[in-house]
């Protein structure tokens, strides 16, 4: 894996108009970005379109990247993730889950029923937030990761975990506060 400085340097080269620098970012991160976006939108053709749009945006916005305010890698992933999130949120404006999603979630639920209240994600050992995440209940961690990784809405998480919508909303809000306090 490339060091942080590589991403920063490559973004600065993009800002100077170097196509090869963008190509290098694509080679380094293309597969991981496509994985992240595909997981959120659930459709391969759409995910590839969004990766196209993300790289065009990275190219056009590279001059706005400020290494003082964060890492290039984080900036790149944010662009791709938010394009994907805006896409799914625009498509599913309604709060209710459509039949197809509900069906899919129900099937997943049946499979996962026995594993309820245990972790749905192999989250440990990924980042500095580990220590604070470990202080939350498994179910609350599941809420956070179903949102962050799967791009689920509150309603989709509630359906997936078979919990009331209000409970899920409150859990997420409180978990974020707990994480924030743990870090400060």
């Amino acid at each position: 894996m490339a060091a942080e400085t590589d991403h920063n340097t490559l973004l600065m080269a993009c800002a100077d108009g170097d196509h090869q620098a963008l190509r290098a970012i694509y080679t380094l991160e293309g597969a991981r970005l496509l994985g992240v976006v595909q997981r959120i939108v659930g459709d391969r053709a759409t995910a590839e379109d969004l990766i196209h749009d993300a790289f065009v945006k990275i190219w056009q916005m590279a001059h706005t990247f400020d290494r003082e305010r964060g890492s290039g890698k984080t900036w790149i992933f944010s662009i791709a993730r938010h394009l994907a999130l805006n896409h799914v949120r625009r498509r599913h404006r309604e709060v209710t889950v459509d039949d197809e999603t509900a069906e899919r979630l129900e099937a997943t639920n049946a499979l996962a029923a026995a594993a309820e209240a245990s972790d749905h994600f192999d989250w440990l050992g990924k980042g500095e937030l580990d220590r604070c995440l470990a202080e939350l209940d498994a179910e609350r961690r599941n809420c956070l990761f179903h949102a962050y990784v799967d791009g689920y809405t509150h309603q989709e998480i509630a359906t997936r975990l078979e919990r009331p919508l209000g409970t899920v909303k409150a859990w997420i809000k409180r978990s974020l506060t707990a994480l924030h306090e743990c870090l400060t």
Partner: peptide, 27 residues
């Protein structure tokens, strides 16, 4: 963004098709 970014690794990488870079370059 900084705190959560490491957890993007929870999504399995997917190798992009060869044609995708060509589309980006074209644009």
């Amino acid at each position: 963004e900084k705190r959560l970014q490491p957890y993007t690794r929870l999504a399995e990488p997917i190798e992009p098709p060869a044609a995708l870079w060509g589309r980006i370059e074209h644009t």
